[in-house]
Amino acid sequence: MKLRKNVAVSEAGLLFNPVTGESFSVNPIGIEILNLIREEKDPEQIGRIILNKYTTDQATFEKDYYDFIGILEHHNLLESHEETKA
């Protein structure tokens, strides 16, 4: 899973998708996860990092993580599998 190449994430939590022209706001933990995805960390690695840093448990985070990924997909911010293969 990869973030679309030209998607820009700012420090302040702004995300701009130049393909669609849409802007988004992301909360700090969301930015952290986006950056980890960009560093090509897999879900288990991301989970470990977040669990080390925040007061949560694996089940809760996993649920929220996949929910978040679902919304990223919904907004067309992830590269689809076809694109990844190509």
Binding site: L15, E22, F24, S25, I50, K53, T60, F68
Partner: peptide, 12 residues
């Protein structure tokens, strides 16, 4: 640890 909050993304 920091208080956990779920990640959110909202369209402006």
């Amino acid at each position: 640890k920091i208080r956990y909050e779920r990640p959110v993304i909202k369209k402006l």
